[in-house]
Design a protein around this nucleic acid. Sequence first.
DNA 1: ACTTAAATTGAGGCAGCCTCAATTTGCTAG
DNA 2: CTAGCAAATTGAGGCTGCCTCAATTTAAGT
Lengths: 200, 200
Amino acid sequence: MTPDRSRRRDARENAEKLRSAALEAFLADGLGAPLEAIARAAGVKVGTLYNHFGNREGLIDAVVPEVLARRLLEVTDTARSQETARDRLDTFVRLMIDLLEREPALSDALLRRYPEAGALSDVCERNAAIARTLVHDAHRSGSLAESCSAEDVLALIWLAAAASRATPTNPGWRRVIDRAMASAWTAPDEPARSATGRAR
Amino acid sequence: MTPDRSRRRDARENAEKLRSAALEAFLADGLGAPLEAIARAAGVKVGTLYNHFGNREGLIDAVVPEVLARRLLEVTDTARSQETARDRLDTFVRLMIDLLEREPALSDALLRRYPEAGALSDVCERNAAIARTLVHDAHRSGSLAESCSAEDVLALIWLAAAASRATPTNPGWRRVIDRAMASAWTAPDEPARSATGRAR
DNA sequence: ACTTAAATTGAGGCAGCCTCAATTTGCTAG
DNA sequence: CTAGCAAATTGAGGCTGCCTCAATTTAAGT
């Protein structure tokens, strides 16, 4: 984003090396990856890291939001391209959880483990807003039970994030979450195509 | 349990002080409570703690299993005293989750964060075995869907543990878990009393 | 080349985990 | 009652990890 206003080339290069090392570490190990290791991978001392980014949150914010926003965009794009409101929400939730299983950094972000990372929180909040509208549409279309609020859906996703970051992880959690989501639809099997309803 | 075979009174007393400080800390803050703080609270240096208990897991094992076993016994006793198989399982799950919300140490135990604490793992395993028989009975009684296996119920409890230990915690998770469990019963509302079933 | 502002870093403080040699202390046999 | 021994305690220290800052190095512009 900020193409680095600093005058000195070495500083710009070091910042760049740090960003790329950080990105790799954060994506691989989550947002708690040791900063000392990142600095080492960038061929620099930690002090330099702190000079450039202030603290862990600063570094996270400089590097992670963009990538996660891209991943989330893929999810929302695919979800929004579905025919029915139910499919849109269903796809969204499913892909979100798939993504959480692959991206520890996203789980850490959704769990708000680093609340000072403002840009990252924004990305999450924007995503939550999308989830809320998808839920709203699903409610309107009658395919999602009113008893399942938008906050419930967000909590479900949050829960997947928490599960995916628990140590050691228990593979069974996914079935439980799927069951919770499955029980939230009003029509037993297929989405109510527009209003062809034998709904209710 | 082991009333301490050591000859020297001071050693016995220190061990006792450590146990009680440890218990307090573990119950209050979970099994990750800093050992240095425990030693300090016991009026002793960490070295002494390590002399007596070897490592964190040793201390956990010396102190936590008994208490958690008691708590779990209350839960299973109450659960088993219910009339129907469905109520027994339902009560068990509900009380377990209540307990997890109150006892971070239990969540840490179920999450297997300290696998070397053998006695603790045993307590958990015994509890899991009880859960399995309750699920089995519920299946036999026809009140629990076959699609909800014992491992699914254990995963649901594990999930509650993970959620309750995530930082910061999101209060909404409980509704999601309740929904998952609620959807696992075959009869929509009340337990099928023995076989008076309009089940299926 | 020299100056100077900027960037880097080494050293260090803090909290945790854990180890171990040296010291202290309780117990007991004489 | 005391000396001597085994047992227990501990201080010091090593390790990782977070973060700070004064002193030094170095790039860039005149």
